[in-house]
Nucleic acid binder design. Structure first.
Lengths: 322, 322
DNA sequence: TTGTACGCGTTATCAG
DNA sequence: CTGATAACGCGTACAA
């Protein structure tokens, strides 16, 4: 593997000149340019990216961290990737499976300048730990967070959840079971607050259903359906934490011969592909815009620029499960 | 940001000694070690990963390239990631959306030593183009390929498809519609060959169904269902290219009030999550092992080692759609 | 046990 | 228009 010096020597010029040719600087005579290019051809010269990285201090690599591969992460990745590639950035993926150590690997890579920035889709370490790394580069999160140093592209779910509840109310449901996502997340808090306010507004008395939370997977939905069937006092609608929960629930109910929305209404959240597949009423969430914004924020921080963020809007997708 | 020299100077030692402490070499007196460590602490010293990368010539980054985010890619990524992280490797993702240019970015990064190796899950460029980059580092593919320089972790689908067909036959289906994946891929060829041999073996005369290929998405499955309903002479079973096609098909049929497997049998391929969700009979494909093998091959090439590959096995998953 | 000095491959400044 | 040379930070023979 020849390097820039060999090329310089063989072409009878200095490395500076070779570098100029490489980066198509002006002020290089056509004669020397051609000479250099020819030698490069001959020796099959390839500039070493690591040397450039070391010199320039930028890798154009952004780390994205999540606990698992959820359908939502995929949408996020897809949109982020699209935005990033326009500016020559690529993505390094860290799936932690909840292992704080794996997350540390990513943080350390930022610290050691192997990554230009980090996006936390779903964190494992405490925010304090993560925050202590902000001095090494931009860190953005998708989760809800109020932190001076870690910008968030989160969109509050209170209103969106309230909209879903009002839809169920309008459809005649009065006995709604809420199934919440991660109990550690603030989304659950917001959704519970939205329900409390809704119940008060609509004068719905407290039910005696158990509290369902930490339910986000298809399997969770399947268990939910089994629970529903076993009850004597049943909810007439279930507002699921994710479309996947709704999917597992609705297919299991169908399998047991229970009609949806006849006997029970089912509602999802996020509008992922499975919601379309199973004709689920759900809330469309602007994941794409959030992902784009995550990139824009990073790009702004890296270049001290001021590109504006995209506005975030949710909307109710009414299908036939309610 | 202090560097190794500043630390050396402040500690009153040479950079070599600092480096030794950094990499916990033996033969450093405890006294000097402590002195150096203290200074590092004080100055909040962080070794620059890029400099190390340049010096050592390895990034411990492997690029993975695919056209889209299919459920199968996710399984692959997940398993690959698990294998890779044990050896300190991370993954950089390239989703090309069929853009050969984006694929070139990855190839160039390998060439320029920003990536240690490349895995083509789904390529866009011609193999010839890709092959010309093998001199810059290990390139492995998941697709079927017979190439000296590009190892493949592909598993032949002839037998698996034949097993699926025999299952349908055993269930009494005689009028099978085959829906094939990418017409450019060899999987389609193998599956068609399996069907031809099956038809001959079971003395099934040629049907007059159109040739369905390049069908891999949920939407493709939905269209397929519409097609099926519109026919007078209908197949009694559909062997779908992927579970997603089967999913789109079966839900649409249900929606139209058609019973599965009563009026038509539906069979998927790959055993992804949606197959479980919709209770689809399918073929389980050893994606995890293929992914692990991809990493093992790369690791072997990088270290001239000889770790053995995992054996590949498929199996029929019988559920209730046939 | 420690230090010197060079190499890794580029870019960028400054002179000419 | 071109060349010398100093960074960028670190690892490592070789010598002591």
């Amino acid at each position: 593997m020849p390097n820039i010096q060999q090329i310089a020597r063989m072409a009878g010029v200095s490395t500076a000149t070779v570098s100029r040719v490489l980066n198509s600087y002006p002020y290089v005579s056509d004669a020397t340019r051609q000479k250099v290019l020819t030698i490069m051809e001959q020796l099959d010269y390839v500039p070493n990216g690591n040397a450039i990285t070391l010199k320039k201090g930028a890798t154009h690599l952004i780390g994205i961290i999540s606990v698992t591969f959820s359908p939502l992460l995929i949408s996020f990745l897809d949109a982020f990737n699209l935005a990033a590639e326009k500016y020559g950035f690529n993505i390094t993926l860290f799936i932690t499976n909840g292992d704080a150590g794996k997350e540390h690997v990513a943080l350390e890579m930022l610290k050691r300048k192997q990554l230009d920035a980090l996006v936390f889709v779903l964190r494992t370490n405490e925010w304090e730990v993560i925050e202590s790394y902000t001095k090494y580069g931009p860190i953005v999160t998708w989760q809800r967070l109020e932190n001076e140093r870690i910008p968030s592209v989160f969109m509050d779910q209170y209103e969106a959840y309230a909209t879903g509840l009002e839809h169920l109310y309008a459809k005649g449901y009065r006995n709604i079971l809420n199934v919440y996502p991660m109990s550690t997340g603030l989304n659950t808090l917001e959704r519970r607050r939205a329900y409390a306010d809704f119940a008060h507004r609509r004068q719905i008395t407290a039910d005696d259903f158990p509290l369902f939370q930490d339910r986000t997977s298809i399997r969770d939905g399947e268990e939910l359906a089994s629970w529903w069937v076993a009850q004597t006092h049943r909810p007439d609608a279930i507002f699921c934490a994710t479309d996947e929960v709704a999917a597992g629930c609705i297919t299991t109910l169908h399998r047991m011969g229970i009609s949806v929305p006849g006997e029970v209404g089912i509602m999802g959240f996020n509008n992922t592909e499975v919601a379309h597949l199973l004709d689920l009423t759900t809330i469309h969430y602007p994941v794409q815009q959030q992902a784009e914004n995550a990139f824009v924020i990073i790009h702004n921080m890296l270049n001290a620029s001021q590109t504006a963020l995209a506005p975030l809007e949710y909307r109710l997708i009414e299908r036939h499960s309610t």
